Amino acid sequence: MSRLDSMLRRLTAQRDGLNWAAAQIADHEGDVLDMGLGNGRTYDHLREILPDRRIWVMDRVLQCHPSCEPPEEDFLQGEAEPMLERLARDGHRIALAHYDFGMGIKEDDVAEAARLSPLIARVMQAGGLLISGQPLVGFERITGPDSIAPDRYLFYRA
């Protein structure tokens, strides 16, 4: 598979997974958390499909497209650990989290996801959904939409 085809497959899975998850949490309270703003495409999609939810966004630096900048009060800039601890300390509960941290080195990305999983668990509300490109630990793995290959994106319930 070409890198272009692989990227298209990943982005389609991401979109389909987010749409599926948004429908799943429709009757549940809680905020949304996008871990890894990047250029802002996922955040932009989340605010379109979940316009009435508070969407927290976390990244080391703000370097997204100007049209995708989150409100200052919803952007958590810095390393993930203190930002997740802040959300937990302030009592925020997340109904839907999207995990998209990574540097592109699989072993390092998997290790980081495992290391952050307990902190992510602290902010998730019971029954909340997580969507991730990396394996997370300590959550119930569930089946996402049929349109997504099981190895392409991972789905969890808190």
Rank of each mutant, 00 (worst) to 15 (best):
M1L: 13
M1A: 15
S2G: 13
S2V: 13
L4A: 14
D5F: 15
R9A: 14
A13M: 07
A13V: 09
A13K: 05
D16H: 13
L18H: 11
N19H: 06
W20Y: 02
A21F: 04
A23Y: 07
A23P: 07
A23L: 11
Q24H: 01
I25C: 00
H28L: 13
H28C: 10
H28E: 14
V32I: 12
D34W: 08
M35P: 04
M35Q: 06
L37M: 09
G40Y: 03
G40D: 04
R41K: 14
Y43C: 05
D44P: 12
D44Y: 13
L46C: 01
R47M: 00
R47Y: 06
R47G: 01
I49L: 02
D52Q: 10
D52S: 13
R53K: 02
R54C: 01
I55C: 02
W56G: 04
W56R: 07
V57A: 11
V57C: 11
D59L: 00
R60F: 08
L62Q: 11
Q63H: 15
Q63W: 15
P66F: 07
P66M: 08
C68F: 15
P70D: 03
P70L: 04
P71G: 13
P71F: 11
D74H: 10
D74Y: 08
F75R: 08
F75G: 06
F75N: 05
G78W: 03
E79W: 03
A80S: 03
E81H: 04
E81S: 06
P82D: 07
M83I: 05
M83K: 06
L84W: 02
E85M: 12
R86C: 12
R86A: 13
L87V: 12
L87M: 12
A88M: 04
R89A: 13
D90Q: 03
D90E: 10
D90Y: 02
G91M: 04
R93Q: 11
I94L: 08
A95G: 14
A95V: 13
H98Y: 03
Y99W: 07
D100G: 00
F101P: 00
G104L: 05
I105T: 10
K106V: 01
K106C: 03
D108T: 05
D108M: 12
D109P: 04
D109Y: 08
R115A: 03
S117D: 05
S117M: 02
P118D: 07
P118H: 05
L119H: 04
L119Y: 02
L119G: 11
I120S: 01
I120K: 02
I120A: 00
I120N: 01
A121W: 09
V123I: 15
Q125T: 14
A126I: 15
A126T: 15
G127Y: 05
L129T: 08
L129G: 00
I131F: 02
S132H: 08
S132N: 06
P135F: 01
P135I: 03
V137R: 09
E140D: 11
E140H: 12
G144M: 04
G144S: 05
P145N: 10
I148H: 04
I148D: 04
A149D: 15
P150G: 05
L154G: 02
A158H: 14
A158E: 07
